[in-house]
Design a protein around this nucleic acid. Structure first.
Length: 610
DNA sequence: GTCTAATGCGCG
DNA sequence: AAAGCGCGCATTAGAC
């Protein structure tokens, strides 16, 4: 039977698989230029390649106009064929919420939607950039801008899952949901109603969000271009040296477990609990560093300090050293485990890319988080073994016959700050190819500045770009607060326009960037706005370079990773030099009259190998 | 049992 | 006057 619902006061039709009618299907969908699209799959476990792994299944595909939603059952060949043809039609455009459906359609039906999609999550991120603070879920957005119909249907489905799930599934929300999407019967009315409404609400939401994006309509275009590019990166996957990763993981796990066991034996405490800090203090090793909440800290620096002071103590020394050894390797261990968990059968990971994650529009990458891999240590500085746990980037490898090359912007945040503030002396230094920190030190301390004063000048620069205060600068540089006050004062006198620009940023509730992006100030921490506009401009410059690379050269589809100020390419071995020259060329240019430059590196088959 | 805050570490 | 910024992810303890 065809279901009905009332959406924004209007009656809409929800066509279920049971009443599929080819003629009516075509007739209703031909009435709309843009179709809402949603898919339902079986659930996936955590720490799993998701749709890029094996075992998952596309169950339903839903397409909708403003008034008619069709739910099609992918286990029925006729419906599967009809929707495949519809999705593959190059003249059709679709709107989804998050790239998930682009991937399920690709994996399940072999259709790549590419540039033919709009995404309502992307539109909402443009309207309400909020980083971790703002949720971009479809149910929440439609409840705010339309009505509660979809949120109610989702709640009804959750209740239905709870009702149907056997007790051994557990009561955890995520477990119930996973079970439900896998096992709910394909003809369950609550399921079909929810599925249909999702596509229909996405369709009806689109013009509402598009209207809100009117002041920056140009961003809607470029951000969807980027979105499709990064979806392709995810779908292609990134190759991992799984043999090396497994070997390293086994070795590091053995080491960490041994060190943790030693701490536990010696102290009776869980080695990772705060109780260890108390135990150490009782035995004379008192940490002077503090966490943000004012509690005694036992981080890397605190441990290093304690080892320095109490390393020879017969009671505390062995505990400190074992704790330090475990702590230093734990992060690497977790990352190695994530590589293995997210790798598909061919040894490729498919990281999820959120092209507008941060409040500043910076991108994020997770599952696995390839932007946060420790860099390999410099071989000159320390003896580094082949199986050193810190060489995580070297687990990322090129496809056969290919190498990795990369380029990163040179001091891009300082250049952006100079440009935005029109700080002439600093701009001139960049034009002349001079070292900006030498200039800063000279302006602050005179021609005869010492190396220590240059370091202070550099810290004052980055501190200013981040909104640091006197106390923090004093603590992080080891000078007194009075001295820090003097340093900041000298910096402000050296760059008065930068000071003024920061003031101007603090006055505004919404910061508008050079690209026309609207960023909300943090109402309680207005000093952050200066950093927001700088960070956001850096992100836009990187995407500009990517756009140039993709539209004027052959190397756009070689992009493997974007890491904030760096582009990593995977290119055929013989093209390494040419590709790198092209890449650095695309990353070279001007921002508001200030030169932007890039440094290139040829890595070879492993990322970050030295 | 499940959820959340606190802590710590990695990158730019 | 004072305030370093943005992310992802693992582990733990304690609240519910």
């Amino acid at each position: 039977m065809t279901l009905t619902a009332t959406v924004q006061g209007e009656t809409v039709r929800l066509h279920t698989p049971a009443d599929y009618d080819p003629a009516l299907f075509t007739a209703t969908l031909d009435s709309d230029q843009l179709l809402g699209l949603d898919t339902e799959t079986t659930g996936f476990p955590d720490k799993h390649p998701g749709v890029f792994g094996t075992g998952g299944q596309l169950r339903l595909v839903q397409v909708a106009t403003r008034t008619d939603a069709w739910v099609l059952d992918m286990n029925l060949p006729e419906q599967r064929g009809a929707v495949t043809n519809l999705l593959a039609d190059p003249g059709r455009r679709f709107v989804t919420h998050s790239p998930y459906d682009v991937f399920t359609v690709w994996r399940g039906l072999g259709v790549w939607l590419g540039q033919r999609t709009l995404d309502t999550m992307l539109l909402h991120q443009l309207v309400s950039p909020g980083g971790k603070q703002v949720r971009h879920g479809l149910k929440k957005i439609t409840a705010e801008l339309m009505d509660s119909g979809l949120a109610d249907a989702a709640q009804a489905l959750t209740d239905r899952f709870r009702q149907l799930a056997p007790a051994d599934v557990g009561r955890k929300a995520a477990d119930i949901k996973r079970w439900g999407f896998t096992h709910i019967p394909a003809d369950d009315e609550t399921y079909l109603r929810y599925a249909a409404l999702d596509a229909l609400y996405v369709r009806r939401l689109t013009p509402l969000l598009t209207a809100q994006c009117a002041p920056y309509a140009h961003l809607v275009r470029t951000e969807h271009w980027l979105y499709a590019q990064m979806a392709a990166v995810t779908a292609r996957g990134i190759r991992i040296d799984t043999d090396r990763t497994e070997t390293l993981h086994t070795k590091v796990k053995t080491e960490v477990d041994a060190h943790l066991a030693e701490v536990a034996t010696l102290t009776g405490c869980n080695p990772r609990s705060v109780k260890l800090t108390a135990w150490l203090a009782e035995h004379g090793a008192v940490s002077t560093r503090r966490t943000d909440n004012g509690n005694p800290s036992l981080d890397k620096e605190a441990l290093a300090e304690l080892v320095h002071l109490h390393g020879d103590d017969p009671v505390v020394g062995p505990v400190l050293r074992a704790k330090q050894a475990a702590q230093e390797r734990t992060n690497a261990l977790n990352i190695l485990a994530s590589f293995l968990a997210y790798a598909d059968a061919a040894g490729r990971v498919h990281p999820n890319v959120n092209t507008l994650k941060a409040v500043t529009a910076r991108m994020s990458m997770d599952k696995p988080a390839l932007q946060t891999l420790k860099k390999s240590p410099d071989p000159g500085e320390a003896e580094v073994s082949e199986d050193d746990a810190s060489r995580l980037r070297e687990c990322v490898i090129a496809e056969d016959g290919h190498v990795l090359v990369s380029a990163d912007f040179k001091a891009v945040e300082v250049r952006i700050a100079a440009a935005l503030a029109q700080e002439t002396k600093l701009i001139d230094a960049f034009h002349a190819g001079a070292d900006p920190h030498n200039l800063t030190a000279k302006l602050m301390f005179g021609d005869g500045f010492t190396p220590a004063q240059r370091t202070l000048a550099k810290r004052a620069m980055f501190g200013t770009l981040y909104g640091i205060g006197f106390a923090k600068l004093a603590r992080s540089t080891g000078i007194t607060e009075d001295a820090a006050r003097d340093v900041i004062g000298r910096f402000r006198r050296a760059y008065p326009r930068l000071r003024r620009f920061g003031f101007d940023m603090e006055k505004q509730d919404t910061v508008v960037t050079a690209s026309g992006r609207h960023l909300p100030a943090d109402p309680n921490k207005r000093y952050r706005s200066l950093n927001y506009v700088i960070q956001s401009s850096g992100r836009d410059l990187l995407v500009d370079a990517f756009y140039k690379l993709a539209t004027t050269t052959e190397y756009g589809r070689c992009v493997l990773l974007l890491v904030h100020d760096e582009i990593v390419l995977q290119v055929p071995t013989g093209q390494a030099e040419a590709a790198l020259e092209t890449l650095t060329g695309c990353m070279t240019g001007r921002f508001m009259g200030v030169p932007i430059e890039a440094d290139g590196t040829i890595h070879g088959p492993r990322w970050g190998a030295k």
